[in-house]
Design a protein around this nucleic acid. Structure first.
Length: 582
RNA sequence: GCGCCGGUAGCUCAGCUGGAUAGAGCAUCAGGCUUCGAACCUGAGGGUCGCAGGUUCGACUCCUGCCCGGCGCACCA
């Protein structure tokens, strides 16, 4: 609809410019749905944009445009010039009619369009990398936000014509995992009575007051170790299955492997619970095994971006405009995390992705420019790597922030939250805010089962009600109308027109959410639709969907079908159920 | 100190590549309500868009400076 209108306006503009021998490109004018309904169905700012160029008053240009546009082949009912030179357009009634029918036909995929051009007949390939947590413990709320954000971005990209791969990157070779293994080993020895746990005071006070021995037993728990109860649980299981056979085990490797296995299983279950399915789990280790790390270093060295200093190997980031250089191989011979990251991103492009999106927490901001510059130096176009950064999550309960600490393992896990509120509410709350901003998870509101208050239920209920009405209609012997078998002009009430207008903006919302990587627009939009539909149904005195007036009933049932399609489509994009009853 | 992100109604937050009178939910207040699924509905109050300049026909939106908050600035991931 909007595109057709745009086409007509572009044509008129071209004519107008040709008339003064101006063959430059057309200005990027906007067509939008005005806030005030008095301003018509659409408004256009083209005349104002041309004022300077044509050295004429905007209103005069608008006059000219109006005559050239005419009724635009039956598209337009009336045109008005308003304010500084806005062109306010009222569409012909028949157009609304067509539009509703289009919505119903598209159903739960309304608004999904290939806004991304296909390449050689195939969809462009995009990889979305998210979560990527190392298996050191259960997923926390922060991971939860990232999981839902990444998944929704992936869904939006799929809906707009991309071939999407969801990827999870992890490493099990670093210090983190070593400390994890040591933590489990310590708990294991403690369980056998061969070691003492550190005092509570020592644990609470970070590195201070760490005793070497308590009650005649050595304290082996690492100072920055993982304190969560899940560590003990893993140690207990090992003790049950292997008894004391692992006491002589050198190092922490055996314990680390077991911990990793158990924790990863746990993470996978959590991800399944919240409706997330990765296509690829990428292990850092394969980069070493396949020589990709060495290759990246060699190539960077050839590019003159690697040098040796103070016993370490450095990436010369300053040569590419960054403010300092970074170590990529430590004095110990171990690579820092940066080096595999570089090799990893290069590898992504070798796998043929046209675009790579990294979803990361705000604490990773420092890292990204180095990866981007290094991979750019290796020939990866910088604009094909994108970073979506999200801020942290806080939880509010009873009007107070819930205190969380990663080190002490007192953070709230995804599982705990989902136990409380369920998958759909969890997802909705996690996606409701724009990624840039902090997210305050209102636990009390999330737990509230009242559909009117809890926004997730509010939207789902609006969808379910379309089926409620259908069930009612069936009882009355009224069948649902075919997409093109009702008279949409019967929808003449203010609130009905508001609903239809709202439905028409959905494709714009989807495109914008996809292109900006901001799924929260969809969540807001759904609330707005539900916010029109729920009160409409509530106010049965003014209008009832099912009445003695057959053609009016049919039109309103048609409206219900269109709303059902839009809500189902939006809910799907957010990964929520679209229930038929609640 | 430097970098990134926020600062919009009492609270939590939307606000499109700059557009016409800045919106929603919760909370508050007033009046309704025996329902196509009423723990609901209708309406009202509530704003120096952090502050100060600048660009523009037009600024919550763009630019500069400052203030407040979060995060980051490792041979940790």
């Amino acid at each position: 609809m909007k595109e057709m209108l745009r086409g007509k306006i572009e044509l008129a503009l071209r004519e107008l410019l040709d008339a003064v021998d101006d063959s430059d490109i057309l200005p990027e004018f906007a067509i939008e749905v005005p806030r005030q309904k008095e301003h018509g169905d659409f408004s256009c700012n083209a005349a104002m944009l041309l004022a300077k160029r044509l050295r004429k008053k905007p209103r005069e240009i608008a006059e000219d445009l109006t005559t050239r546009l005419g009724n635009a082949g039956g598209l337009i009912d009336s045109l008005e010039i308003a304010g500084p030179g806005f062109l306010n357009i009222k569409l012909a009634d028949s157009r609304w009619h067509d539009l509703l029918h289009d919505v119903i036909r598209a159903g739960s995929q309304y608004g999904w369009s290939a806004s991304q051009p296909a390449r050689d007949g195939a969809k462009p390939k995009v990889q979305v990398e998210f979560v990527s947590a190392n298996p050191t413990g259960p997923l926390s709320t922060g991971h939860g936000r990232q999981a839902i954000l990444g998944d929704c971005i992936a869904r939006l990209l799929e809906a707009t014509g991309w071939d999407v791969t969801r990827e999870y990157y992890f490493n099990d070779g670093g210090r983190q995992m070593r400390v994890l293994g040591e933590s489990v080993k310590a708990r294991y020895l403690e369980g056998l009575g061969l070691a003492s746990p550190p005092s509570k005071a020592a644990l609470a006070n970070s590195e201070k007051n760490w005793e070497e021995e308590i009650d005649g037993l050595p304290v082996v728990f690492p100072k920055d170790g993982y304190q969560g109860d899940y560590i003990k649980a893993i140690a207990d299981e090992l003790r049950e299955s292997a008894g004391g056979a692992l006491v002589e085990e050198p190092g922490e490797g055996r314990f680390r492997e077991e911990a990793q296995r158990v924790i990863f299983e746990d993470i996978s279950k959590t991800l399944v619970r919240i409706g997330i399915d990765f296509d690829v789990y990428f292990n850092e280790r394969s980069l070493y095994d396949e020589g990709k790390l060495d290759e990246a270093i060699t190539d960077l060295r050839e590019a003159g971006l690697i040098y040796d200093s103070e016993g370490a190997v450095w990436f010369k980031a300053t040569a590419r405009g960054l403010d300092r250089d970074r170590v990529v191989i430590k004095g110990t011979g171990e690579p820092t995390y940066l080096m595999p990251d570089i090799a990893y991103h290069r590898d992504k492009f070798r796998r043929g992705f046209d675009l790579v999106i990294d979803v990361q927490g705000a604490d990773h901001i420092e890292q990204f420019p180095f990866v981007r510059e290094a991979t750019a130096a290796l020939g990866v176009p910088a604009d094909q790597i994108e970073l979506v950064l999200h801020q942290f999550v806080t939880i509010t309960s009873g009007g107070e922030k819930v205190k969380q600490s990663t080190r002490k393992a007192t953070f709230v896990t995804i599982d705990e939250l989902v136990d409380d509120v369920g998958r759909d509410v969890f997802r909705f709350f996690m996606i409701e805010r724009k990624p840039d901003g902090h997210l305050d998870f209102d636990l009390d509101l999330a737990k509230d089962k009242n559909w009117r208050k809890n926004p997730a239920y509010y939207v789902q209920y609006a969808h379910a009600r379309t089926f409620g009405i259908e069930r009612k209609a069936q009882k009355l012997g009224i069948s649902m109308p075919e997409a093109n078998a009702f008279d949409a002009t019967r929808l003449a009430l203010e609130e009905e027109i508001a609903l239809v207008r709202k439905l028409t903006t959905f494709p714009d919302v989807v495109r914008r959410a996809a292109e900006s990587r901001e799924p929260h627009h969809v969540a807001y939009y759904l609330r707005e639709v539900a916010g029109l539909w729920n009160p409409y149904l509530q106010d049965g005195d003014r209008h009832r969907v099912l009445s003695d007036d057959a053609s009016l009933s049919a039109a309103r049932l048609g409206l219900a079908l269109a709303i059902r399609g839009v809500l189902a489509s939006g809910l799907e994009l957010l990964g929520l159920d679209a229930p038929e009853s609640m």
